[in-house]
């Protein structure tokens, strides 16, 4: 019997794939946003509304990550944009290799903004760099304030927290000031942005944020 010293980082293949994706996105000048949240926070509805608002301005593509079904990609395709579904078949997050595998189906050269909707989960997706330009998190008001201190890593690695479903604020116990304070303690570089994908309240701020991000990403 022999003992072989390997000293190999298990995440090495993921890191390499994320770099590969990042270089490709840079080459095609595509702004890539990795959207994460718990299940049901409204990621897909936000995307539908965003596509309606921006499809005359930008060529948009979407990668949908779910454990099972094509349902979300079907919803997005109805909006007339290209959508690819990754069914992870049990994995609780997207990893950069799954993303790299579907990129050939997307024709990145003809996409200005690519949204990657991660699997609904506030834990594992925060640990995987997909090669995106920005990571953002969606938190909906009925989920309550505790989500920020309970899942600190997610709020630490993201740079924008969309607080969705603010049309429900009169009916749920959600304290926006407390959310701002909690987020400051975990990540002073992130910001809270209250929106409603249903009523449209605050949505302009999100669209402005996206336009700015696109401008920055495509600057020579």
């Amino acid at each position: 019997m022999v003992k072989i010293t390997l000293e190999k980082n298990v995440m090495e293949n993921n890191d390499r794939a994320a770099e590969f994706n990042r270089r490709l996105f840079g080459k095609t000048r595509t702004l890539v946003i990795n959207i994460m949240s718990s299940p049901g926070a409204g990621k897909t509805t936000i995307l539908e509304k965003t596509i309606s608002a921006l499809s005359d301005e930008f060529r948009i593509g979407v990668i949908e990550g779910d454990i099972a079904t094509e349902r979300d990609a079907d919803r997005i395709r109805k909006k007339g944009v290209r959508a690819v579904q990754i069914a992870t078949e049990g994995e609780c997050h997207l990893d950069p290799r799954m993303v790299a595998k579907v990129l050939p189906d997307l024709d990145l050269d003809s996409i200005d903004i690519l949204f990657i909707e991660n699997v609904g989960n506030l834990v594992c997706p925060s640990e995987f760099d997909l090669g995106q330009n920005h990571r953002i998190v969606v938190l909906s008001t009925p989920e309550g304030n505790d989500k920020i201190p309970k899942y600190p890593l997610m709020f630490h690695v993201t740079e924008l927290a969309l607080i969705n479903k603010i049309d429900l604020l009169p009916y749920v116990a959600f304290d926006m000031d407390k959310a701002r304070e909690d987020l400051r303690g975990i990540n002073p570089d992130s910001q809270i942005m209250p929106i409603s994908a249903v009523s449209g309240e605050g949505f302009d701020n999100w669209l402005t944020w996206l336009r700015k991000a696109y401008e920055t990403c495509t600057k020579p």
Binding site: K3, I4, T5, L6, N9, V10
Partner: peptide
């Protein structure tokens, strides 16, 4: 103060294996 600089604890690697 939060945001301390991590010096150790993030490692996840295969150190070695034994076989024939």
């Amino acid at each position: 103060l939060p945001f301390g600089v991590l010096l150790a604890g993030e490692t996840f690697k295969i150190e070695s294996y034994e076989g024939s």
